[in-house]
Design a protein around this nucleic acid. Sequence first.
DNA 1: GTCACGACGTAC
DNA 2: GACGTACGTCGTGACA
Length: 900
Amino acid sequence: MADTSPPRSERRLALFDASGFIFRAYHAIPPLTTSKGVPTNAVLGFTRMVLKALQELKPTHVALAFDKSGRVERQKIDPQYKANRKAPPEDLTPQFPLIRKVGDVLNLASLDAEGWEADDVIGTLAMQAKAEGFQVLVVTSDKDFMQIVDEDITLFDPAKNKRLAVVDVQEKMGILPRQVRDFLALVGDAVDNVAKVPGVGDKTAVELLHQFGDVETLLTRLDEVKKPKIRAALESHRDSLLRAKQLVTFNTTLPLGVKLEDLARRPPDSTRARDLFTELEFFALLRDLPAEETPRPEVPPLVTTTTLVTTEAELKTLADAARAAGAVTLVPAYEGLPFAAPLVGLGMALPDGTTRYVPLRHQQLGAAQMPVAAFASVMKDVLADAAVKKGGHDLKALTLVLANEGLPLEGAHDDVELLSYLLNPSRREHALADLARERLRSELPALPASVEGKKGRALSDHGPDEVAAAYAVRADAARRLAPELWRELELGGLAELARTLELPLLPILARMEREGVKLDVTELARTSERVDVEVKAKEAECHVAAGHVFNLGSNPQLAQVLYEELKLPILKRGKTGPSTDQEVLEKLAEEHGSALARALIEYRGLSKLKSTYLDTLPTLVAKDGRVHTTYHQAATATGRLSSSDPNLQNIPIRTEVGREIRRAFVAEAGHQLVSADYSQVELRLLAHIAEDPVLIQAFLDDEDIHSRTAAEIFSISPKDVDREQRRVAKTVNFGIAYGLSAHGLSTRLGISQESARDVIERYFTRYAGIRQYLEDTVEKARKVGYVETLYGRRRLMGDLLSKNRGVAQAAERAAINMPIQGTAADLMKKAMLAVDAALRQEKLKTRVLLQVHDELLFEAPDAEVEAVKALARRCMSAVAELKVPLKVDVGSGKSWADAH
DNA sequence: GTCACGACGTAC
DNA sequence: GACGTACGTCGTGACA
């Protein structure tokens, strides 16, 4: 291949002072957001400047230099350095990662060095490039950069469209570029908090430098300084002057570890640039992008075919390659629920792009397959080796199907479903096919319908050739998605959450699912029979009250009976017609004496419990007599887990029949169930996050929080609070973190809107910190476009600026709630890691079975019960140091009901 | 028969 | 629309 790189003399490196421009752009351009509310003024200014400078300078090589914890190293010289700087404005912070993204899609290298400023990165690169014969252009508006100007290094100020060479520095400053550092040290810098020598202004500084050349010489010949005042000042500021020179001097010897060749200019990735500019609504800039798709040779299309692995020797080679590379991406072929699903085959991808499919349990006659036992013996070690990082999509499912084969999996690391979830937890799905379409511009071939939960031939009835490519491509796609997702997580400050919380939690959830919880089906059947009698009686009662038989489960039929035949008033309407929900029925029963409504309420309650729990749960008991739920780690917008098949996070507890259902969740013989739950965790977190002194004190005093709130609201002593007042306060306490409204409170409590408004106003007067927090949260969310938890989990909030007021208000309530609910979820996840580690550490046989948001349920051998109670309380309380204590209630017994 | 949707109700 | 986050059941109506 011909060498097309420019001759040495024509190589021009443009170095952008990116961090400098971010702040300039932010202040130069008035606040601006996308229609979704993402602030973009600094991003726009920065992008325009970069594009303009590139056009003007036509460099052959380019780099963007950023600060990274920039003041840290200089503060080692002087702790006062930039100590007076405020944190960046809150609507600027979210623009930093966006600016990095702009650099990324424009194919410009972004460089930084931990602890150093962009200045130092540029200084280092400039020297390196000069030594290699480059012409260096530093794009900046900062005069400090004049210190590195020489015959090969010039500055370019895009704002003024002016270049600055040695002569310009001399003309402007009256000194040589290499004296700029001395000049800056003498006159100081108020903005950066660099001390000056008092009495020395620009003129004196220049004069002194003409006479002595630099500050070091000046200080050795102080007696030659004519003016006594200046001489005295210099004498007494000797140390601070030398320190100041150190501070203003660029470090030109950073170990950046970058080759200049890597900075060769590449055309923008116009596809991604187009997407990003569209997302940012930079429509004017879109036109300037090259129209055609830029070929991306470094990102080849996904594989379309693969090779089957059917011999032990081939598989061994593959396992060795994975071990050597330290990573492998695995996509299992299975159908149904991963607990108990047999492994039909395995798609694999290695970091070098090799893909394979291992057929294991295809039914096709004559198809060559890998014997399962041989597969297990070859793969066991590499799967269990945490040093070999595992990638894929839904690694919990992979962990489970491998566990079914007796193969423990360690080193789960690149789960693209989980990584995508952290980037945008509001998103409905993180299906691999969608991620591949969006991020790799590739369509994945379809999987057999049965795998997607639809009807069709069983997976194992397909031949290996039919499905091999589909699974191998998926492994290839997941392998390629992971680095991109990690990069975005790093940019958003979410990578630590992934590494230290979500990924370590994944195997714990897999174990909990595998463990399952024992269900006493006889007990459930007994209850079901009894409830059945009651349900039938209530049904008959309803039919009598209606005067004829109808389907009680059909709301349209019910509405006809209530509102047309019985002529009851329509109190509420839904989208499809008059409502028949519980609230309406209660009013009809109480205020209009409707016997039908009264009977129907009881019918609904009982039949719900019967159909959802009493009759369904027994069908979900596995062969081991236990129920195995599936936890979803990438499902909720707040960071909570969810549970399905069955959902064990909404097992009834409030009603008597509900408690009977919990009585059917039991411990094995010789064991007990131990329950540990956080008391009032969300209200405690609200107190901590909002820093409300009154609420914090209430928790420090371990008071009955609802009575205390009642006392505050009604301005009375806690001991004088009556039941009704406590009930009101309890409702307010529960509703407050949900964005409670006067209307909502009034309907819930059956009081007038006026008194509800009054109650809320009194609440906010007493708990002023809470009101402030709620307002600040919404305001900040509007500015930055997201809300976050104490641990940095983020939820993007696009609807806050919706023109539809209802939509915008709903988004405000969600924004208020997420930091509270999400932080509680973070805490519980941390607690689960701590509890798991402690159980191992103490070599206990106790297992964690269930997590229900603020509760953990354990199954403990009788002998361990007390130890586990103490352990759970300890681990869960100590998971964070907050301004309020984290209280944990524990209990134990033969059944879940008894453990409460 | 299958699917998507809305209404409803359970949990925290 | 009216208080946040989930999932499951049922009935309904469109479609095959």
